[in-house]
């Protein structure tokens, strides 16, 4: 047995350095979890479908090079090409479903998991501010969810666009826009659900009620309530990432996307406020809250 090191004159690590250390500690735990496996299966669904379609096309059992035909609300037959289908998937599956789900599952767990596992004490008895713990965990969330979601989006892009007769080169800028939009969605939902995770006793349930109850319901209710959702502001950015044609507009109508969408500037301000508000309030709560861990 030997004597542990005695530290020299201690220097308080900077906020950024502390957050990076927490990030390093948290990333592996976040990535190699059952939660990640579940979400990888969810976002792997479209990739699997696209791969099957690709295989069928390669075997000459299916030809979609002319796009996909739909009947719009005026009973007219319209055709959507690859970029159009991809844009719809980004909006319908990734932005409205996968991003909020990732936000709920990961965001609410950032602090709540440490409390439930009774390991928060080890982080809060080190010489770093609780805000730095929160920031490190939030960075780890962004990287984890980004690594789960964005490869799926890119794979679907490359598999679907050319399969349906689109040009990958021409549609590539929209992919970049879509990826940025999804990253913004992850950041904003993450901040919101991190706040719920630090504040509420049953954060996952509260988060699920928000994304599966509140957001879809107020999206179809006329009035101002939809301003209290994240999807409303994301919607203001989404159409610019998607091709504008009659078919896409018709399908968006069927998907209950509100006709009145905020401007890009209003969307950015709204999302910025939710992001900054979520992060600041989370930090405020965590700094003041006593986490009573019982044996």
């Amino acid at each position: 047995m030997s004597t542990p090191l005695t530290s020299n004159v201690p220097v308080v690590p900077s906020f950024f350095r502390s957050a990076v250390r927490v990030y390093e500690l948290s990333l592996g735990r976040m990535l190699w979890s059952r939660r990640t496996l579940f979400m990888a299966l969810v976002v792997g669904g479209p990739v699997a479908v696209a791969l099957v379609l690709r295989l069928l096309a390669a075997l000459d059992l299916l030809s979609l090079t002319g796009g996909v035909d739909f009947v719009d609300s005026a009973n007219q037959r319209v055709t959507i090409d690859g970029p159009g289908i991809f844009g719809l998937m980004v909006w319908g599956f990734y932005l409205r479903f996968s991003v909020p789900l990732l936000g709920v599952f990961y965001g609410t767990s950032l602090i709540a998991d440490e409390i439930e596992d009774k390991t928060i004490t080890y982080l809060f008895t080190r010489p770093l501010s609780r805000c730095a713990v929160l920031a490190g965990k939030y960075f780890a969330y962004l990287v984890s969810t980004g690594l789960v979601l964005l490869p799926s989006v890119m794979l679907v892009f490359f598999l679907v666009v050319s399969l349906l007769g689109g040009s990958i080169g021409a549609a590539f800028p929209s992919l970049v826009t879509d990826l940025a939009l999804l990253a913004v969605g992850l950041a904003v939902y993450g901040a919101l659900f991190m706040l719920i995770g630090t504040w509420f006793r049953r954060p996952l349930l509260t988060g699920l009620v928000f994304i599966l109850g509140w957001e879809p319901i107020v999206a179809v209710v006329p009035g101002y309530l939809k301003r209290f959702t994240v999807s409303y502001y994301l919607e203001g950015l989404a159409p610019h990432a998607m091709p504008q044609d009659r078919a896409v507009t018709g399908i968006l109508g069927v998907m209950q996307v509100s006709e009145v969408v905020p401007s890009v500037a209003a969307s950015l301000i709204g999302l910025g406020l939710i992001l900054v508000g979520g992060l600041s309030l989370s930090a405020w709560v965590v700094e003041r809250r006593e986490y009573v861990i019982e044996q």
Binding site: R21, R126, P127
Partner: peptide, 8 residues
């Protein structure tokens, strides 16, 4: 990992 949080 924990002592890294002390700035080591």
């Amino acid at each position: 990992a924990l002592v890294r949080l002390n700035g080591f």
